[in-house]
Design a protein around this nucleic acid. Structure first.
Lengths: 225, 225, 225, 225
DNA sequence: AATGAATGAGCCTTCATTCAT
DNA sequence: GATGAATGAAGGCTCATTCAT
């Protein structure tokens, strides 16, 4: 009972997709190549053939998930660079949240599990992928604070914002995945996301402004709502 | 070469302590009872004997870690109830951070791993333990916002603060545990913690105030430093 | 369906014996722990438990086989040290041959396979075990040649004798094991061994004497260069 | 990126050569067709295609190695049939040794591994190839002993000589292959070979003469029975 | 003629658990 | 009360082989 040998890369793609899903659900160690291959409708030896090892598949599947996710949700949230810093911050926060919450994307579940129980296998890949995101955020905050991105206060604010994006959403993801099928639960969650992004943006802009040193005449027009 | 039968509970205590450490380092699934027993200098069968199963040991060791941690770091950070809400918030944030960062305590590593890869075993125990912490925080924020603790905005702010405590510190923990001995690396980290708590308090108070509806006379004295 | 836990070392002994037999028949790589355990009536995990790995079992089983074999066939063949050098040489050759040909002993089959396809695992064990055998032979030949055991000619003669013991007998072993049960085939083979030992002793003594330096009445017609 | 389809037999030749080398180094079971094909720069399916199976390739590669080796080293060592029996024996021994030690030739490594761990696949091929070698040696010894080649004593002497050729040289081969490049290490080994051949010839001629029946001028001090 | 892709069987190992002592 | 010994179920990986192209 052989599979059709369509174009030769189909199995590879199936494995990457299935691996992303299973690794996101179970983590590296608890995921079994048997389950991945069952879902990809491939033989267990196919992983050795295409990727060499479970470890290599893990790294590849994360890169794959991350790339796909970034294609769907550009870092700047589609806000033009001519918009105000506040609007661009809101755009970034919203884009990040949508990436995190998208049930199609598995990168953040994998990322989260890797943070909690590092295998060390993703260190390099994550480093390369996450750095630009952090840097873009730090640049924006630096603009708002009128300081260099490497400044300590900028870093602290960056951390505050990132944490507000990650924390609640990984919970939301789990709550969601614990339910049934995604189709019905998608829209309400996206609504939630916008509301949450509004809150985090407003909350954080206030926090940032409280640190702004020497502008006595600071305006109060916020973004959102 | 039997062990001394001191009081019969010594092995149990050793197992609880060792389990907390190992589960914190490796998570439930990846921790092996062999390693736990090796560290506790007990026989592998001792776990089945004392706790019935690996699962039961897991729950017990978390309760044990949590209880010990709460004894060391009271929820209110030692700030008297007569102090201002801002000071009490700072006290809570600092206490929470110190609990998280304490290398002696394993509850947060276990908690974090359980969030990332839920076994479901701790659901009830965590629920019971975390609820009062969240409630105390919500009460305080409600006081600052002049709203009920169950109000949506209060919940959002509570989330913002909790996330700022968890996010950076679990990273700090890992970075720390990756180094050498904890004793020498403790002080500088505690300094960091106070600095971080100051930032989060100031940042969040500003965020909270920005949501406060229509009180023109709001004061600006912040806490910290 | 548990095994009886008689004295706790029975399984270990069974495994050692079975391993010697299987490793001798199939070699390290082709032998499977499943087969060894089937023959020892033990679980496959028992090997990990008692020895840690297939590799460690291999080494242990060889030491076990070698020790048992040496107990049955002392190196000197039971010839008293007061006997003539010729008689003692004959004793050694016969003892070596009997050790090699004994169907109960597996050390030489393992040794032979290890020489042909080294795993490297037995290097140290074999070195330690074989050294005294070679040294004893070299001492004896040195006595016959009136030279030091480390002399080049002594070494060459030692090699000639050892090769004559090994070569034909490993063939004989295989021919024998290819047949059916050992009980009936044992005596005729032992007879063969004595005949063979006589031949090798006579043949080699003549070769040695031809090299003996200072006896003026020996003939010197040699071949080559 | 297909290979050039030169003449269609190039791949076959490459496979035979690579197989000889790999089988010699690892033995039949441990050699993998993946490694052989990698070295031959061919696809793994090529073996099934050209030879039908790993087994068939094994047999073919041995025949190939043996044929090539025999071309380089004629059985009689180039000694004319008019030379004395002693000289012809020396020639044969030297030729046999040179065949064994030649690092270019793999037949003896394969042969040795096959003796130690018979696959049964080479039985017929080896039988056919080795018979003439043994017969030639037996004829020569029969001439020296003035007996028929099938005589028991002739067979024993033949065995003694063959064993002295095989034993030390397979060791030498392994020692050599464990070193670095063969080119530089070749000359000193060939010197050793001649020295060794001299020893074996002299040693064995003495042994043979000691068995020569009724020539009144031979000495008779033997050992045994 | 030749190959990339895929397969299924088998191997060694790990692990939580359970007896008999 | 406590333990050494033993178990069986998986898990990841390797490998010779076989298709469809």
């Amino acid at each position: 009972m052989r599979k059709q040998r369509c174009d030769g890369q189909e199995t590879r793609q199936n494995l990457l997709a299935a691996a992303g899903e299973i690794f996101a659900r179970k983590g590296f160690r608890e995921a079994t190549i048997a389950e991945i291959c069952r879902q990809a409708e491939a033989n267990t030896a196919a992983i050795s053939y295409h990727f060499g090892s479970k470890e290599a598949l893990y790294v590849e599947s994360w890169r794959y998930s991350f790339t796909q996710s970034l294609k769907t949700y550009p870092l700047d949230g589609g806000i033009p660079t001519t918009a105000s810093a506040e609007e661009r911050l809101h755009g970034r926060i919203l884009a990040l949240m949508r990436r995190i919450i998208d049930p199609q994307s598995h990168e953040f579940d994998i990322f989260h599990k890797e943070m909690a129980s590092p295998t060390g296998l993703l260190a390099k890949a994550i480093q390369e992928s996450v750095e630009p995101i952090f840097m873009g955020l730090a640049l924006l905050i630096g603009e708002l604070l009128d300081k260099k991105p490497s400044d300590h206060e900028v870093q602290l604010c960056s951390m505050s914002i990132r944490a507000q994006c990650f924390g609640p959403l990984v919970h939301a993801r789990r709550r969601k995945s614990a339910e049934g099928l995604p189709p019905s639960g998608l829209e309400p969650l996206l609504e939630d996301v916008e509301q949450l992004a509004d809150h985090v943006t407003r909350f954080s802009l206030a926090g940032i402004r409280a640190l702004r040193p020497l502008h006595p005449h600071q305006s109060n027009n916020e973004v959102g709502s």
